[in-house]
């Protein structure tokens, strides 16, 4: 997965899930983020959270249509951005959380 970019990449992502960025999308996000060597950060309402820590993400109360900023930095940042953006934008219509 090495792409040797070492670039700080930023992207604003809109949460499309009707239930917001809830427990399961968070779990999926952490799992995906943990597969990359790059640092992963999420910014929401001006606060920065570690994207590999479920505990930190528990504090992200981003609802439907709200925006979070995804930031990745490291050797595989391009791949990571691509993949994580996908996970974040995923529409999970289940009512469970």
């Amino acid at each position: 997965m090495e792409d040797a970019s070492h670039e700080l990449l930023k992207r604003v992502v809109k949460i499309k899930n009707p239930n917001g960025f809830h427990m399961r999308p968070k779990a999926a996000f952490v799992e995906a983020a943990s597969r990359f060597a790059s640092e992963v950060k999420l910014t929401w309402e001006g606060q920065v959270f570690n994207g590999k820590s479920m505990f930190e993400l528990m504090l992200v109360a981003a609802g439907e249509d709200s925006e979070v900023t995804l930031e990745v930095f490291g050797s595989d940042s391009h791949l990571a951005l691509q993949e994580l953006e996908k996970v974040l934008a995923e529409e999970d219509v289940s009512v469970l959380d």
């Binding site: 427990m23 968070k26 570690n50 590999k52 820590s53 479920m54 505990f55 469970l96």
Partner: peptide, 15 residues
Amino acid sequence: AILGAHAQMIEDPFL
């Protein structure tokens, strides 16, 4: 999956 999230929290290296 909810329990999966629990397991992730339990294994959270930051914790």
